[in-house]
Design a protein around this nucleic acid. Sequence first.
DNA 1: CAAAAAGCTTGTCCTATGTCAACGTTTTAG
DNA 2: CTAAAACGTTGACATAGGACAAGCTTTTTG
Lengths: 189, 189
Amino acid sequence: MYELLKKYISSRTQINDKEMDFICSNFKPLKTKRNEILVRYEEICQQYYFVNKGCIRLFTINKEGTETSRFFAFEGGFGTALPSFIDQQPAFEYLQTIEKSELLAISRTDFYQLVETMPQFALIYREILELGFITAQKRIYGFQGFDALEKVKWIITHQPHFLLRVSNKMAASYLGISPSTLSRIKSKL
Amino acid sequence: MYELLKKYISSRTQINDKEMDFICSNFKPLKTKRNEILVRYEEICQQYYFVNKGCIRLFTINKEGTETSRFFAFEGGFGTALPSFIDQQPAFEYLQTIEKSELLAISRTDFYQLVETMPQFALIYREILELGFITAQKRIYGFQGFDALEKVKWIITHQPHFLLRVSNKMAASYLGISPSTLSRIKSKL
DNA sequence: CAAAAAGCTTGTCCTATGTCAACGTTTTAG
DNA sequence: CTAAAACGTTGACATAGGACAAGCTTTTTG
């Protein structure tokens, strides 16, 4: 159950078995169904999730009812409605598992407790933030001034498995193009 | 010289005068001219900058020679080519002061030294990353599916002074629209 | 202070991409 | 296992906004 999480942690920081077990003891296993909602629009996010199996998606729905995908976390990745988790404001977005998944969840209280008391865990969090920041930047900047074809090429380069793993509809909404356009582009490679 | 920086720090963490002076001693004053380049495209960024006066801009130039603005830091804000600063890879972007400015610069070595040794400074950095992450997210998501008019309204709501402070050209390139379009939109309010 | 450079606005034209609809295929759930 | 729903693909059409250019205004700099 905790192998993947332990691997994630041990590959990033020096830590002994006791400390590792203590960190893991803060994460509770959680099985979810396809399309199960973890955080609703108006809710305040209280958990950080590690994906052991499956996939979680962050998305919104605009006034016209169109979904926009914001972020995906796959096996071995962390994900949550971070702005809400950090600031304890309503999420203004949804978090869901798009397929049957196995997650490890840590409460916000326990999470920040670990950050405050364990330098190794503070480092892990720092790296999550640094990486998240860089990824967000690359996505903004990578997409700026790109036409649809360039966006698709970009995602193929930077997340090769992405288009294979999620539906066209979700992929298109992540790239900020219409499903028709994505379909047309893929047919031309 | 250090008032603004001290204000920034003391408003975010508990700290005594000695510690504050020690932090400040790591920051060196630096005066720059209009359009002075701080980090070039192929350079590795070695400094973090606090803006005491003026404004720094992060931007790129694509193959066609068009500039795209990525980020602006104004008085009282921190800015640098963060991905390069963190990973010590070439920046692939430019950092410049767009007007005569007064900066406080801390070297990467000293910066991480402070992060590692002073919990208060680690907290400051964590907050910079958290805020940067949230801001980047809001910008991606705020812009996704927006047309030009909605982007302009968004920036007026979220950064009211922005359009007044930077040129149309830079503002347009930040919003991902052409200067002509921005001009047309502004004329209709 | 004057010349030059840069920036802003606005017109015309054109293209990439969105919308909508039809149809066939795959997935889901009872 | 089958009916119903969701999804993917493709065509026809409409349009937001980009490119370019001309003219005017503001800023810069020597």
